[in-house]
């Protein structure tokens, strides 16, 4: 009888946990912004390799920043970025400031350039990139930093759909060379 009681107790505990683990609380922000369209990307040919040395500084004040990755230690930066990418719904609409290497890549499927801030992790062995979109008309590579340049980008975290896949990005109004 005692053994049956133990087994039942264990089963109930596990079932409780599994049922709780399966639930996912809906986030109002997710449905609101999941359909957000990515702003018009500036697509230019790669043959004009004139790097931009002067980038427009972001005008977001430090007080209004919700997630400031530039002020965190390496362990927290890695964890925060990892959570931003695994649970993006919690960060949608938040102002993010990030520092890392600028990287631009061209995707033939859409014919667009995509821009990233690549952030090194705690052990300096794994890097995570966060895409950003620079609002307004800007030409690549003329107006952008060189690949590998250290930049600071401040903007609002969001998502957009492209080719049936949801991507995370930070919408910014400027890039600062670090």
């Amino acid at each position: 009888m005692k053994k049956i009681l133990i087994v039942l107790l264990c089963l109930v505990t596990v079932l409780c946990c599994v049922s709780c683990g399966g639930k996912k609380e809906p986030d109002a922000d997710t449905s609101k912004t999941a359909d957000t369209q990515k702003p018009a990307d500036t697509q230019k040919s790669a043959d004009t390799q004139k790097p931009a040395e002067t980038a427009k500084p972001a005008n977001t004040s430090s007080d209004a920043i919700d997630v400031d990755l530039t002020k965190m230690n390496s362990t927290m930066v890695y964890s925060e970025v990892s959570n931003m990418l695994s649970e993006p719904e919690k960060y949608i609409g938040k102002t993010v400031r990030m520092k890392g290497q600028f990287n631009a890549s061209y995707f033939e499927g859409t014919g667009n350039y995509y821009y990233y801030v690549v952030i090194a992790d705690a052990t300096a062995c794994c890097a995570q990139g966060i895409e950003f979109v620079w609002e307004g008309e800007h030409n690549y590579p003329d107006d952008f930093p060189k690949n590998g340049d250290e930049v600071i980008v401040t903007g609002v975290f969001g998502q957009y759909d492209e080719l049936g896949i949801t991507y995370n990005y930070v919408s910014t109004d400027g890039i600062t060379l670090a």
């Binding site: 599994v18 683990g21 362990t75 890695y78 964890s79 990892s82 695994s86 705690a122």
Partner: peptide
């Protein structure tokens, strides 16, 4: 385990809680 514990997803947490309880 440099940072794994700080990147747990909710399911991992509930699984850990359940197994620990057992």
């Amino acid at each position: 385990g440099s940072t794994s514990i700080l990147t747990l997803k909710p399911f991992d947490v509930w699984l850990s809680v359940g197994l620990s309880a057992v």
